[in-house]
Design a protein around this nucleic acid. Structure first.
Lengths: 145, 145
DNA sequence: CTATATTGGTTGCAGTTGCAACTAATTGCA
DNA sequence: TGCAATTAGTTGCAACTGCAACCAATATAG
């Protein structure tokens, strides 16, 4: 197996690393400026909104948003304190709980989206051609989770 | 100005976001497993190693590694405590200091690189074709810092 | 059916980050 | 020159993250 990355690879890696760092910073600061919660709240609420009725188990959210269980548990504490989600007892598994988004949670999502969306458009999409975007998507989808 | 991102854009954004999250996690955990310091140390030491003789001012490092000054100052505290860098008084500007990498710092960099390199190769490059890599690089270089 | 291993989730602690306030030196401009 | 504005860097505090230890419930194996 190859284990030494070529010059090109390193270059691409650096660009990826840097682009993501820059973009994340812009998105977070756009959210902050609009007095909205951070991106991680969005990601979590978004996953929950797709299962509005049945909710999700913590380990499911954890996989989807790539947050380890410790931090997710505490993120949910914060979300719950703001009434954005609610922990319900889980009938099939006495250890766990089912997380369900509240109406306030849905509302928050709705308020965050335009800010998030606008930041993506401005700092990401506006810098690229439609072709670039399609290519990027295709290439990056090959990286396994 | 457009401010609403298309479906394709969002898809690409999600892939970018996720790929980077996954890759960063793999690299960090490879470093940790090899008992090496985190990536941010590498980035900083690397920039300093390019100016081994003259060193860099904190604000210069800050721009290069995209770390704000508060955090950089404390990162340097940690590096200095490990004797990887040294803060020298700056003759041209009494407020600032010049950071210079030590031999131990260079050594650390040398030890980290194979681990880092191998992780990039395995989790990133090995998943893509050379064409992908070149394309990715070209596209992402358009995102301004 | 019991003992053990595994899994889902929480908690305490130490380390890191972000923010705001601060000091000190430098620059700019009247 | 002399005073306000800016810049370089540090520090205190609160929030967040990672890690290890932990509890409780379920799955598994003898």
């Amino acid at each position: 197996m190859k284990n030494k990355a070529s010059k090109d690879t390193i270059q691409a890696w650096i660009h990826l690393h840097r682009a993501q760092q820059v973009l994340l910073e812009k998105v977070e600061s756009a959210l902050k400026q609009a007095k909205q919660p951070p991106l991680s709240w969005y990601d979590t609420l978004f996953e929950l909104s797709k299962e509005k009725k049945s909710g999700l188990r913590q380990y499911e959210i954890s996989q989807k948003v790539l947050l380890n269980k410790h931090n997710l548990s505490r993120l949910l504490d914060r979300l719950e304190k703001q009434n954005l989600v609610k922990r319900h007892e889980c009938s099939e598994d006495g250890r766990g709980n089912t997380i369900i988004i509240t109406d306030t949670g849905i509302e928050t999502l709705k308020q965050m989206w335009p800010v998030y969306n606008q930041a993506i458009e401005q700092h990401f999409a506006a810098q690229l051609t439609p072709n670039d975007i399609e290519g990027l998507s295709e290439i990056l989808s090959k990286i396994p989770s």
